[in-house]
């Protein structure tokens, strides 16, 4: 990634379900330390885009480069599972509904990948996990199981789990959508703190005020395309595309 200033580079990405094109000609990039928000109505393709880049959906065309490693290249590129896994480790992903492992303790949820993927020894993995839990204000819950935690706590654990692998970019897929309104604040605060630490992040969100506050750049997606892109001021205060205006009026 030395000669590449972008952490994420996406060119002309296309994705379809059967005959339906759900992502059309998507191009954008993310620089180091940048916070990018992706907004748009349900079905606009914003989550699909995040999932495609995190290898949870197939990509039908275009180019995706993550930290200088090419994930896809107009489908001419064939990667082994090992190579794909290596590329995925540049990304961390926080899911909308957490997807913690219910049969593992909070601590184990975090150490599992450290031990089996990054091959850390158990003691070191535990130290890393505990310091991250401390940062999330959950050190005393290390021995608990996910079902014993509130939604906000679960989401903080899942952020810790993603951060443990030291990703170059952290992706959030509507991180507060599964939470009670009074719990969204604690997650937004964690993301804000990470932004202060210059963590590179891409946040798919419905929280407009939040997106405006923390983002360096905002992408508005509509019907599978990037309809508008710019600084929060440009997109929120002075949208050029009528679809963006229409969308933002609802908030």
């Amino acid at each position: 990634m030395s000669d590449n200033k972008y952490i994420i580079e996406v060119n002309n990405l296309e994705k379809s379900y059967g005959d339906t094109l759900v992502l059309k000609d998507i191009s954008f990039s993310v620089s180091e330390g940048e916070v990018l928000s992706i907004i748009g109505s349900s079905g606009s393709g914003k989550s699909t885009l995040l999932r495609a880049i995190n290898q949870l959906e197939s990509i039908e065309g275009g180019e995706v480069i993550i930290c200088g490693d090419t994930l896809c290249n107009n489908n001419n590129l064939i990667l082994s599972n090992e190579e794909k896994r290596k590329i995925q480790l540049h990304n961390g992903l926080v899911f909308q509904d957490f997807n913690l492992f219910p049969h593992m303790s909070i601590l184990q949820n975090i150490t599992e990948a450290l031990i089996y993927v990054l091959k850390k020894d158990k003691k070191e993995a535990k130290e890393i996990a505990l310091s991250l839990l401390d940062k999330m204000g959950l050190k005393d819950r290390a021995a608990a199981y996910p079902s014993q935690l509130s939604g906000g706590q679960k989401q903080r654990v899942s952020i810790a789990r993603a951060l443990a692998l030291k990703p170059n970019v952290l992706w959030f897929d509507e991180p507060t959508s599964a939470l009670d309104p009074e719990l969204t604040g604690e997650i937004l605060k964690v993301i804000k703190d990470l932004a202060k630490e210059k963590m590179t992040m891409v946040v798919v969100t419905h929280e407009m005020a939040f997106a405006k506050e923390i983002s360096d750049r905002v992408i508005f997606m509509d019907d599978g395309i990037i309809a508008e892109e710019g600084t929060p001021e440009e997109v929120f205060d002075n949208p050029k595309n009528p679809r963006t205006k229409q969308f933002l009026q609802r908030f």
Binding site: N81, L93, F95
Partner: peptide, 27 residues
């Protein structure tokens, strides 16, 4: 088992076998 469990394993860099035997099968 929720498909989110497979997805979590995948984004954490687990092999398919690791996800199956350590995440899915115990559940």
């Amino acid at each position: 088992i929720d498909k989110g469990q497979y997805e979590a394993g995948k984004v954490l860099g687990f092999t398919k076998a690791h996800t199956f035997f350590h995440v899915i099968f115990p559940q």
